[in-house]
Design a protein around this nucleic acid. Structure first.
Lengths: 215, 215
DNA sequence: TAATTTTGTTTTGCTAATCTAACTTTATAG
DNA sequence: CTATAAAGTTAGATTAGCAAAACAAAATTA
């Protein structure tokens, strides 16, 4: 079996590979807040288990087996988030922290029951797709709001930051998944985006706009 | 904070103290399936944290602080069992194993929400009382079915064994909490109990009868 | 391309949780 | 009331996960 620690390394590798394309020891070390020597030795251990391709001084890469394991953790995380919101009544900024712990529970029965009760959801409360039981993950290619041009009308479909501070910032602006916005201005200098939706106008900083995915 | 390991030792100490009155290293070692030297060293560690009173060669005893911590774990365990049954639709023989893991989740919010959704239950699916948030535990004194006499009519209120094998044994006999049985015979030699309920007659071995609590 | 900076690895060492083997204390049985 | 058995402790190792210090490779830059 896998330890919680191993699962967290796999999840991080999957996430960083998705985000950056290539992952090296330094990046992973920063992301997990763990010193590089520790990461190096964990990579050797995961390589022994055939979950990671590891060669000194080369970028890190999950094996197929590693990808599957990582996705099972992601599946448990996202099902949990959905369950916490839909069944237990938590709000989208509360679910991430709890799911970080529950994702390590070892009980297929438990997560399959969640899946059933939720009627096999395809995405979590932040719009991230939920891998199926086979570990397949359909990743729709979405654009960042910060890459949109003036006069475009788009729908907010996902957020790539699930911290409660970020989500509360969106709550204040009444931005939820499904909100349809029209870009009325993009500031030349700082790239702040001005959007209109539901008869309201709000400005969204480049930093925030970079974490909102739209269709 | 406490580790999962520490929580398991505290829970075991609480349970054994309740069951046997006095707990020594050997008993705890057997119960947890951990060798005695390991238990000794953990007891010293817990004594440093003022969770256990420990003196060499003396019986083990939780401090008040230790009792409270233990009860918070028990609370999380039993709330979880109830939640798994009532909200998620698991049966009573499935809930224990999952709850063994979820009891270590660190999120008061999560368990308070369970409590609320369940409308503050006083007992779990096996009839065990749920400690309140202050760590108070009202333990009704119940008798064992195996201690009852012929012609008594009693209600099954709790089981002291939550393994799925045991509970399936009860399922086969259609014995659930709340079942009212009348003792029609107690075997002189092997103490097998014969009971009548719902127009049926069943025999219950001394071993099983000792794990059924009645009122 | 040689020097310097950045990145990554090796070595050494710590803590938590576990074990086995050897020893000590307490309990028990003649 | 000793001798032995049972229970408990001490000592020494191991494994997982982490870090600091020292070292090595790769990338950058002058």
């Amino acid at each position: 079996m896998n330890t919680v620690t191993e699962e967290n390394y796999l999840k991080a590798l999957h996430h960083l590979a998705d985000e950056l394309g290539e992952v090296n020891v330094g990046v992973l070390s920063k992301h997990l807040n763990i010193k590089m020597p520790t990461v190096t030795s964990m990579m050797k251990k995961l390589a022994d288990k055939e979950l990671v391709h590891y060669e000194s001084y080369k970028p890190l890469k999950l094996t197929e087996k590693g990808v599957l394991k990582a996705r099972m953790v992601i599946r448990k995380h996202r099902l949990t988030e959905m369950f916490l919101e839909k069944v237990m009544g938590f709000s989208w900024e509360e679910v991430h922290e709890i799911a970080e712990q529950i994702e390590h529970i070892n009980s297929p029965l438990f997560f399959d029951k969640m899946d059933e009760l939720l009627e096999y959801p395809k995405a979590d409360p932040h719009g991230s797709p939920i891998p199926n039981r086979a570990g397949e993950l359909v990743m729709e290619k979405l654009r960042k709001l910060s890459d949109c041009l003036v006069n475009e009308t788009v729908e907010i479909c996902a957020v790539t930051n699930t911290t409660s501070g970020f989500l509360q910032h969106l709550n204040l602006r009444a931005i939820t998944l499904g909100t349809v916005v029209t870009i009325t201005n993009v500031d030349d200098y700082d790239k702040t985006v001005t959007v209109t939706y539901n008869e309201k106008t709000t400005t969204i900083s480049a930093m925030v706009g970079g974490q909102l995915l739209v269709r």
